[in-house]
Simulated assay, not measured.
Amino acid sequence: MNLFTEFFAIDIGTHALKAMSVAPGPGGQGFSVTDAIHLPLPTGLITGGFTNPVITSLPEFTAQVKRLLGQVRSHKEGCFLGLPDRWVKLHLVDLVLKPHELASPEYLSWRLRKTLNLPDGLDVIIDHQILSSTVTEDGLACQLMAAAVRRDLLVTLSTMLADLNVELMAVDTSSLGVYNLMEDLHPENSLDRNLIMCHIGHETTVVRFFHSGTITYERIIEVAGEEFSRLFGEVEHLDFPQAQIFKAKRTFFPQTAEEILAQVGNRELIRRVFGNWLRELNVTFRFYQDKFKVMRLPRIYLTGGSALLAGLPEFLSDFFETTCERFNPVASIPSPQPIDPAVTAQGVLFAPALGLLAR
């Protein structure tokens, strides 16, 4: 695992801010986790999508970021910032380019904007990564991954951090860097094969399909932890804060014989709370299989706070007839000293923040 130690990461979620940093271990061996902070945000403070990202109160958000920074042990040389996935529009683009066109950032930005067919009047910043290129008679046949973000959003965030004396080094989507960690830790399951990364957050479930290190398909499902809590509250007649608390303690997906027997009468509860989410996942997976001619679903890795629901990976393994497991990169950080068990236990929650630090 190769991580930046001179910077720290802030992951913006719709439910919480997460910050993470590491330092070189004693004698330069491995890493020590210096920061792993989870700061819940007021409901509705962060919302919206790519065309309309919303911070409902910039003063309140600034105050929350300031609180977070107050808990960070060292601001180091600057920070990497992870944006909510729904604020960033990712595209896979195939272009045939001349060498001089490929070498011109201005031309590529113009060409990508035309190709992406963005809404008129939407001022965005477009970044790209060349995934592959092949020499042809007409030029270089390139596959690129392009990411578009509203310019005014980036100006707002960079100005806010500058006012807080933090240098913004780079911006990424919150969950995209997780794959870099996956490829590093599990090359046997990622190189030259398919896999699925499923990030179950507060408002959305982000499903990304990879083949040999390249995203082949992505879908954002507008159902996740918040909706689970709302539906659970309806069934159990709890208000939302109570439902949030009791949901975390409830065993929805039994594993032992005793738990299975105890849940026999609760099948309707599982259907009410998780039925729509499971249907959306099923539609997503079936579309992927049809489009890419995949007979059997590849291995599924779960991240995000809602992936901590007890028994969920085992349930999904049975439901979709494939291997499903949580991806906890924090537990795999090479460290000569024990990592705080409380941090390790929340590793799937901190995975996007740690992914931002991946070199």
Rank of each mutant, 00 (worst) to 15 (best):
T173K: 00
T303F: 08
A331K: 07
V93Y: 01
F228V: 04
G355D: 10
A103H: 06
W110M: 08
E203Y: 09
G265R: 08
L349V: 09
T136H: 03
K76R: 11
R113F: 01
L97K: 01
T216Y: 09
L118Y: 01
D11H: 09
V96T: 15
G355S: 11
M197E: 05
Q337T: 14
H211P: 12
D340A: 14
G13V: 02
K76V: 07
L154R: 11
V22M: 07
S190M: 09
K293R: 14
G78Q: 13
V93E: 04
F50Y: 14
S335D: 12
L102M: 11
P329G: 03
G27R: 13
S32E: 15
F228S: 03
V206Y: 01
D152A: 01
Y179I: 03
M145E: 13
M20E: 00
A345M: 00
K293C: 03
R272N: 07
M20N: 07
T115E: 10
L281M: 14
P40E: 03
P187E: 05
S229Y: 08
L191D: 06
M1F: 01
S306F: 05
G30I: 06
G177R: 00
P119T: 04
F274Q: 11
A353Q: 08
E236R: 15
E234I: 15
P26V: 15
L354Y: 02
N328D: 04
C324E: 02
S174W: 00
R208V: 10
V207L: 02
L122F: 11
A162Y: 00
D138P: 00
P241I: 01
I221M: 00
P53E: 13
G27E: 14
E258K: 06
A162Q: 04
L118T: 06
R111V: 05
Y179D: 05
V283Y: 13
L164A: 02
L69H: 08
E321G: 05
P53S: 13
I10R: 04
T156Q: 09
L309N: 05
D138R: 08
D172M: 00
N282W: 06
M295Y: 11
G139Q: 08
I130S: 03
I220A: 00
V264G: 11
F292R: 13
L185V: 08
R279T: 15
H38A: 03
F292M: 08
P24N: 06
S21P: 10
T256S: 07
A148W: 06
H100D: 14
N2P: 07
R73C: 01
T14N: 15
I126P: 12
L140A: 04
P338R: 10
Y301S: 01
E226P: 09
L176N: 07
E258S: 05
V294Y: 05
M169V: 12
N276H: 15
T51A: 14
Q129D: 12
R86M: 13
